[in-house]
Write a protein that binds this DNA or RNA. Sequence first.
RNA 1: UCCUCAGUAGCUCAAUGGCAGAGCAUCCGGCUGUUAACCGGAGGGUUGUAGGUUCGAGUCCUACCUGAGGAGCCA
Length: 450
Amino acid sequence: MNTPANTAITEKPVTTIREIGQHEGQSVTIRGWLYNLRESGKLLFPIFRDGSGIIQGVVPKNAVSPEMFESIKNLTQESSVIVTGKVRADKRAPGGYELDVTDAQVLQRVNPDDPYPITPKEHGVDFLMEHRHLWVRSPRQAAVLRIRAEIIKAARDFLDERGFTLTDPPILTPAACEGTTTLFPVDYFDEQAYLTQSGQLYIEATAMALGKVYSFGPTFRAEKSKTRRHLTEFWMVEPEVAYGTLDDLMVLAEEFISFIVARVLERRRPELETIGRDISKLEKIAAPFPRITYDEAVQMLQDAHAKGLIENKFEYGGDFGSPDETYISSQFERPVMVHRYPAAVKAFYMEPDPERPELALCVDVLAPEGYGEIIGGSQRAESYDLLIKRIHEHELPEEAFRWYLDLRKFGSVPHAGFGMGIERAVAWICGLEHVRETIPFARTLHRLYP
RNA sequence: UCCUCAGUAGCUCAAUGGCAGAGCAUCCGGCUGUUAACCGGAGGGUUGUAGGUUCGAGUCCUACCUGAGGAGCCA
C-alpha cells in the first residue's frame, strides 16, 4: 500500500481501519470519509470510515494548530479526508482503538447547503433505494455486500475444487426456457432476442463436452412479482453433471450449501455480527439435509391444515405456494429437500420417475426461517422422443430447441443439475427482510434507478 | 392482473372537519470524553395530482399518479 504516490501525501504508513490495531502506539495515515462528528467544547470527536471499518478520532483544541482545529470542526458528513494520527487502545471505543488526530487533509468538503442525505437516523425503504448509490456506504450494507462476495467465492471454490469447469452461457438468447410472458425482449438487429432466464440448456451442452460444468451469471425474469423474494435481475450459479442422477444432485446440493455456510462463518463472522445475524442458526447447517417427497410434503400440509396451523387446504397435484413453503421449511432447522413433484407442474425438460412416470425427478431446496426456495434442480429428460413430446405439450417453438434436441441425438446420457439464486441465499444467510439489500443495485418491478 | 396499506419540511413522523407541528439534518451560540452526544436559538411547507362535499378540508368523497407489503408465478 505504501506506494510513492501515497508517500507524496504523507510520510506516515498508510493503513486501513480494519488493521489499525497492528499499529498501536504508532502514527499512521488512513484515507476515507467523515462518518459523523461530535463535539464537546474544545474537544472534537470526528468518526471516520474507510470502507474497512469505523474509528473515532480525538482532537483537543490545544493539540493542533487553530487552522487544523477549524478545518476538522467544519467537516461535513461524507467529506473525503486523509487523516494522520496516533493509534491508541481505548476501552471506551467500540472497535477497541481511537486515533489521536494530528493532521487531516480534506480532499472534498461536502457543501452544507446540499448535505449528505443519509443521516445517522431512520429512513424509509423508498428513500434509501432512491439513494442506493450512497446507501451502500452504510456499515450494514457494506457488510452484506462483503458476505455476498464471500458466498459467491465459496460457491465457485466448491465447484472448482470438485472438478467443475466454469462455462459461461449467453445472456442474449433466441428462446425461453419456460413461458415467454416472463422474458425481457430486446431488439437484435432484425430479429427478436430475449435476456436469458437461465443458462441451463446451454450448460447441458457444455456438460456433454466437459463432464462437470457450471455457470455463474445474471438472469432476467419479467415476472410482475412484488415480494421480498423477487428481483427482475438476479444471479444464479448452476452446476450440471453428465451421468448425474437425482440422488447425486441432492448430495451435491447439501454439500454445496453446507460448504458455503461454513465458509461464511469462518471468514465473515465480524460482518455477520455487524448485521446482527443469529449465528447459532447458521451453525446448525450441515449435511445431510432432511429429504421428503412431494407426497410427504403434501401430507404435512394437509395435517397442518387439519390442526388449524395453516389457512388454506392444500390440494394434491399443485405446486406449493409461498405460505406452504414457509410452513414446510419451518418444520426443520436445516434446509429441507423436497423431491419428486408431479411432472405436470414442472418444466418440460425433467426426467420422469421410472417407478411413477407422473412424477418428475426434481428437487427443491427450501431454506429455513421462511426464506423459501433457494435451489431448484432436476435430472434432465434423456430421450429425444420424450423431450420433443414435452416441447409440443408446452407449446414451445420446436425450431428454437433444434440444437438442444441434438444433445439427445448424439450420445444422450443421464444428467442432472440445479440452480441456486444468489440473492435468496444471501438473504437467508444474512437474515435479511428483503432480497433488494443483497445486491449492490437491485432491479425490481418498479425500480430501474439508480 | 388482483387484494391491502401509505403519500404532510431534506429525512422520520404528529395534527376530533377549525391557527400545519415535533425530533433529526442545515446555520448561529454553549460545553475538554462524546457514543444516533447534549443544551439554547434561527431558517425551512402549493399537505402526491385533479375535481367534489362543506361556512371551513392535511383530515370526508371520486378519479388518477407514485411507492410499499402480499397473492399468483418463480430462484
